[in-house]
Design a protein around this nucleic acid. Structure first.
Length: 271
DNA sequence: ACTATCCCCTGACGGC
DNA sequence: TGCCGTCAGGGGATAG
């Protein structure tokens, strides 16, 4: 559920609070999908200083002063949250980070346990990141449009969800971008005109920017590092609005399954 | 080398 | 009240 705007919101908050701070202690409360497991994970981080927190696609990357990185993925319910010390841990809390000079702990929790943190070296990180498509807010619309040409038979929805095509888009913004562009998610790439692709590319950038300005969308589980909800939910035009009136034309929003995902669109506005 | 499908997990919710 | 089935979904693994 956390997509580019949500992950970027978390990144900004983490960067602000972690930059320049030494990780004093790492406590593992519950084993997850972290690598390496257990004490090796703890030892890899304790005593390191966080130089910066970066984002690529939906990945959060802590840059440490010994040249290694902590790569994290929130998946659907992963959460970094700053909490006061001495509080009773939640049943889903997995890791507690204590930072020098910070009166709060940083807790990593994850209800569905799909998320993970991995310690990586430069080469491993470079290898991982090489598989992703362009950052949609860091390239021109034309660059994005050109990514949506092939394979011709692929559904638009499937292409938008594929991180090697364009990075950072997930189910919410795929549906929202298609609605803004007036294109049905079931359209095949080969059917799109150059103008369609360019319009879609601009819609992608527009919806991501607008959501980022609202600190993202809290559709289901997403909360930022302060436990706050994103403000973009009520500005969604189709996602999660099955049967409700389209915000353009009042026709009821339809929901189908496409690329294994719930897919929302307006049959009147989107062709 | 492709694409499509399965599956990991827990909590919320509807039906009975 | 409780039980059961269904759904939410990113992306790696696997089947085709």
């Amino acid at each position: 559920m956390p997509e580019l705007p949500e992950v970027e919101t978390v990144r900004r908050q983490l960067h602000q609070k972690l930059r320049g701070r030494k990780i004093r202690q790492v406590k593992i409360l519950k084993t997850g999908r972290e690598w390496p497991r257990g004490n090796r994970f703890t030892r890899a981080l304790q005593g390191q200083t966080v130089l910066a927190v970066r984002r690529r696609a939906k990945l959060l990357i802590w840059e440490l002063d010994n040249g290694t990185f902590v790569m994290g993925h929130l998946k659907m319910t992963g959460r970094f949250v700053f909490v006061g010390t001495g509080l009773q841990p939640d049943k889903h809390d997995r890791i507690v980070f204590e930072l020098e000079g910070l009166p709060q702990c940083l807790v990593w929790s994850d209800i569905r346990q799909f998320g993970f943190l991995k310690v990586m070296n430069t080469e491993q990180l470079k290898q991982l990141l090489s598989n992703y498509g362009p950052e949609p807010l860091e390239v021109s619309p034309q660059v994005l449009a050109d990514r949506l040409k092939t394979p011709k038979t692929r559904h638009l929805k499937a292409a938008l969800l594929n991180q090697t095509v364009i990075a950072g888009i997930g189910n919410i913004y795929a549906d929202e971008a298609c609605h803004r562009a007036g294109l049905r998610p079931s359209r095949r790439l080969g059917d799109l005109t150059s103008a369609d692709r360019l319009r879609l590319a601009k819609s992608i950038q527009q919806v991501l920017r607008e959501s980022l300005a609202q600190q993202g969308t809290s559709a289901n589980d997403y909360l930022d590092t302060n436990g706050e909800r994103g403000g973009f939910l009520e500005l969604l035009r189709v996602y999660g609005r099955e049967g409700q009136p389209c915000k353009n034309c009042q026709a009821p929003v339809k929901k189908i399954v496409l690329a294994q995902r719930g897919t929302h669109y307006c049959a009147n506005c989107q062709k």
